[in-house]
Amino acid sequence: MGYTWLGMRKLTWEEVLQRHEKGELAGCFRLYDDNSEAMIDRGYDFAGDILAHHKKGGEFGEDIDTVDLELADGKKITAPAVVDVSTLGCMDELEYELWHVIEDYMVQFGIRTQDDEPDWATVKAVQESILTAFTDAGVNFKFGYEERSCASNKTSEKGRREGMRSAKEITESLEIAKGLCEGKTNESWNARKAGRVMAELIAHFKKKR
């Protein structure tokens, strides 16, 4: 699964090399799959400590800003200043584990399920209560949908503007068509323009269908 603690920003191999060349790699960390880490001290050996770790598929990271907070009952916690949940990717394994906890509660209550499939709505509800507890404590979650929401709003606004423009064009065309039908024509409203107006109307309503 790899190193997943969000209190550490992972460094690319290029960043590791750059920091090594600048003498800035000390104080960073070697990261391990069990979510443990080892600080790189000033007397590190590049070949033995850094390159060997990299060749084994090991990762590197640096501490990010953290904040000290308290849960509802006074339990002190330390959290990243911003918890970027979007970087975690798929959380299926964690959600399955949460379902197993819910099953333990059901056993205590004498409740049985009629099949082995998790009830994902219940899992999500419990997950939401956990997130709410941390949010109330002051944890700043970033879920990644802020950018998507912004992009969606821009798309909606573009569609709205295009819809307004289309409606304006159709209204103008209908006014011209009305004038043609009522005989309010002049030299500029000739048969050619009438044909174009009707073609625009037909194309518009075909698109709507």
Rank of each mutant, 00 (worst) to 15 (best):
G2W: 01
M8A: 02
R9F: 05
R9V: 01
T12N: 02
W13Y: 10
E14G: 04
E14I: 09
E15A: 07
G23S: 04
L25P: 01
G27M: 03
D33Q: 10
N35C: 08
S36A: 06
A38Q: 10
A38C: 10
D41C: 11
G43W: 05
D49W: 02
H54F: 01
G58T: 01
G61Y: 01
G61R: 08
I64T: 06
D65T: 09
D68F: 00
E70F: 02
A72M: 09
A72T: 08
A79R: 12
P80A: 05
V83F: 14
V83G: 00
T87K: 11
T87R: 10
L88G: 04
G89E: 02
E93F: 09
L94W: 12
L98V: 03
W99I: 01
V101R: 14
D104A: 08
M106Y: 10
F109E: 13
T113R: 15
D115Q: 03
K124V: 09
K124T: 11
K124D: 13
A125V: 02
Q127N: 10
I130T: 04
F143M: 09
G144R: 02
E146S: 08
T155D: 07
S156F: 10
E157H: 08
E157Y: 09
K158N: 06
E162P: 04
M164I: 11
R165Y: 12
T171L: 10
L180C: 05
G183D: 07
E187C: 06
S188L: 13
N190S: 13
R192N: 11
L201I: 14
A203I: 07
F205L: 10
F205D: 10
F205V: 15
